[in-house]
Design a protein around this nucleic acid. Structure first.
Length: 158
DNA sequence: GCCAACGTTGGC
DNA sequence: GCCAACGTTGGC
């Protein structure tokens, strides 16, 4: 069982959108980065848990928790010319892009802002808080997962 | 195989 | 809206 953090822009698709889906389940499509593709295709397993991170918004931060409910499988939006994620170079016989299914678990009691995550010493090794990091999906160590959950009930000022 | 140009991410 | 940092592309 592994832990992850997955970013999405809430103006495009936020945790409220996932919670509103039938079965509160959706596929995490549109990943077009090879490092992230490899994680989804090779490492994610049903039962893994992931933080839902809101990026590119007024207060970026961790908004909730979801469960991975499938292994990686080909991202069909790459073959849909109508899709924003269309990639004519992805061959159906040799899919270039993969996705997983995720199920809403819960919102955090408060959004934990990136500014607090950056200030937490236990998280200093996370790619999330490092300058220039652009991965939209990243592994989270168990100790980091626990530290973040403890922050959920803190007052936000240390 | 190098690397400059380009497009994108995402915090601020 | 700006722009630094990064990944990808494609000419050579």
């Amino acid at each position: 069982m592994a832990y992850w953090l997955m970013k999405s822009e809430p103006d495009v698709y936020g945790i409220d959108d996932l919670a509103a889906e039938p079965d509160q389940t959706d596929h995490w499509d549109g990943v077009r980065n090879y490092q992230v593709r490899n994680m989804m295709r090779d490492r994610m397993q049903p039962g893994d848990l992931a933080f839902f991170y809101h990026s590119n918004t007024k207060v970026p931060g961790i908004a909730g928790i979801m469960e991975i409910v499938s292994t990686g499988y080909p991202d069909h939006t790459a073959w849909d010319p109508e899709s924003n994620y269309y990639d004519p170079k992805s061959d159906p016989d040799n899919p270039r892009w993969y996705m997983v299914d995720v199920r809403f678990q819960r919102r955090l009691e408060r959004l934990i802002p990136l500014s607090e995550l950056k200030a937490e010493p236990a998280l200093s090794e996370m790619a999330l808080v490092k300058k220039g990091n652009r991965l939209s999906v990243m592994p989270v160590r168990e100790a980091e997962w626990t530290a973040i959950l403890e922050m959920e009930h803190a007052d936000g000022r240390g």
